[in-house]
Design a protein around this nucleic acid. Structure first.
Lengths: 342, 342
DNA sequence: TGCTAGCACTCGCTAGCGGGGAGTGCTAAG
DNA sequence: CTTAGCACTCCCCGCTAGCGAGTGCTAGCA
């Protein structure tokens, strides 16, 4: 019969997790007993540890070693035992200022988010641009470059810009171009690539531009799913569980070739709040001894992206969760601000 | 007295390098003798190896091990012995097509160059955007966004676009904006940030825009030096010399934090052709058992950037050199083409 | 003088062994 | 239910011996 999960046992588990995360070595009964709020003997703790093991919450790497949290143990910790860290006001202020110092453009924020999260949690950080499943036109602009050649600038709802060089067939004055971009901005507003493709063109030049707009939208959609970027691999390399490259390799590959993480990211896109996935909850074998902490950002459903952390299951969840939440909300706020402006 | 570097000894060195690069294990006299074009005994090869060692071109990890090329040995190999590989026409065609399939924009080419080089040489690849030491204005454009707010688009000589949101002080019609952007495009053409800063403004709005232009240029300059990006760390992780994370860590750090490589990249920016730096020729201790193969791309002096490979000194130089050359010239060609269009 | 065959030697690599120590599980008593 | 005590397990470390790859050296031959 399954042992009971008494309050003290929960407490023991909590300390096993927190101790193991910081020390990276199996936690002995003595270590836990020493840190206990009321005096308990090591033998008592050992009994509790045995019970936790029977419940599948901790493991022993081998007899006569301390205990290590199992994935289920981390899960219980995150769900019920963890108290998210109070982040230093100074740290938050620094991050806040960094975000308000960079250029007012989403790519800058995302690059910064990568760097900040990686540094703050000492893990790898992943970031996706807004993943509009269908890219739409917000506005288009035609910039004359040279005789017979214009630069098409397509503004997307996410605030991204796509540019494309368009050769014209018939000569056009600057005024023609302004009329054309006004007309097309109104005509194409909120249209998707396939809708643009089927829009009839009123002139040869307009046909050229329509083609280019559709192409730009398609590229934007494609880039969305391939646009995952990461930072902080150096922190992963430094983790003792990845000291041997055989362990490290699948993780680095998963990060560099986004498709391993893609399903997880798309899932996080829908869910509100901060999402934590631990070890075997992840879909791929390759990253079974990793955890991810993710949150979606972005105001509208089709301008949402994901930021988060990828690290070993032995991760300081109590820091990772509030930090991811904070950075996510910062980007979210900046995007709302930029939407209000537009 | 120093032994002589006879033709056969050069030949032995060549084969030590090529064998070691592919096998990653010290090369024995027998292996070399077996591959010899004319029949020689292992004893003869051993004598030659001893001579090469005395010349500092090869090393012995320990007595009773085979020989491994030294940095000087690699250098001699690259300078005098190497015959750059004839790349497969199919491989070149594939790369060529990839470059002509992506969007017509420099960032796309650079991302592709990273991926292609990493994959083709199985090493990390580094890429910098055009590193204009002084960013200049090519053209500016003002796009109305909302009441009192415009999006400033600055085209740079490199083909990059910088965008910036500018709040206006006085109301302006669409025609006002066109006049203003025409005026400023002409006025500021080829100006640097500091020159823009000291340009007197004819109106309050113009002052706002001038500030924003200067800021955009400064950001562009700054991003140039921080804009180094890399790919293919997974290949570095897979190399046996980096199996232990202690060896790997400094390399990954050097890649992620561009400043270690910066001086090397700036040097390569000036030099024509493909530049190879081997082991201790690199400025930083951290990457002493790495080599880099770099080439500059870009038509004009202030639109030049660098692409290349970073890998272990045990690198297939005979493939790396022609591949870097090829990819560099592809980007160069695309940039020239895009300049001709504009 | 240069090449080659033969041989002793070096030294990393691996397996096996033993002692020390950390940490456990169990038992019996409070 | 908790605790003190104790035997037990098993990792870790250092040591040793044997093996084998590969060398350096020497002597003989063209």
């Amino acid at each position: 019969m399954r042992p009971e999960l008494t309050p003290r046992r929960r407490w023991v588990l909590k300390h096993i997790v927190e101790e193991y995360v910081t020390s990276a070595t199996p936690v002995s009964s003595e270590t836990v007993a020493r840190r206990a709020p009321v005096r308990v003997s090591t033998a008592t703790v050992r009994n509790d540890m045995a019970a936790l093991e029977e419940l599948g919450l901790v493991r022993q790497p081998h007899t006569s070693a301390g205990r290590v949290p199992s994935d289920a143990g981390y899960r219980l910790y995150v769900n019920e035992l963890m108290r998210p860290a109070d982040l230093e006001p100074a740290e938050l202020r620094t991050i806040y200022h960094q975000f308000h110092q960079v250029e007012f453009a989403i790519d800058e924020w995302l690059a910064l988010a990568r760097a900040v999260l990686a540094q703050a949690v000492h893990s790898a950080a992943v970031v996706t641009p807004p993943l509009a499943p269908r890219a739409r036109v917000r506005r288009i602009e035609l910039v004359p470059l040279h005789d017979g050649v214009v630069l098409l600038v397509v503004l997307l709802p996410s605030g991204h810009i796509r540019q494309q060089v368009v050769p014209l067939v018939e000569p056009a004055t600057r005024e023609d171009l302004i009329r054309l971009s006004n007309r097309l901005s109104a005509l194409l507003a909120n249209r998707t690539a396939s809708e643009v493709r089927t829009t009839p063109a009123a002139s040869v030049n307009e046909g050229q531009v329509l083609q280019a707009v559709a192409q730009a939208l398609e590229h934007a959609e494609q880039q969305g799913s391939e646009g995952l970027s990461y930072a902080g691999i150096r922190f992963i390399v430094a983790q003792p569980e990845f000291a041997h490259s055989a362990k490290l390799q699948p993780v680095v590959e998963a990060l560099e070739q986004g498709h391993v993480l893609a399903p997880v990211l798309y899932e996080a896109l829908q869910a509100p709040g901060v999402r934590v996935l631990i070890g075997d909850e992840l879909p791929h074998e390759a990253i079974r001894n990793c955890s991810v902490v993710l949150t979606a950002y972005g105001p509208a459903p089709d301008t949402r992206g994901v930021v988060g952390i990828v690290g070993p299951t032995r991760m300081p969840y109590w820091r990772a969760v509030p930090l991811v939440r904070f950075v996510g909300s910062l980007i979210d706020g900046l995007m709302r601000e930029s939407f209000r402006l537009r």
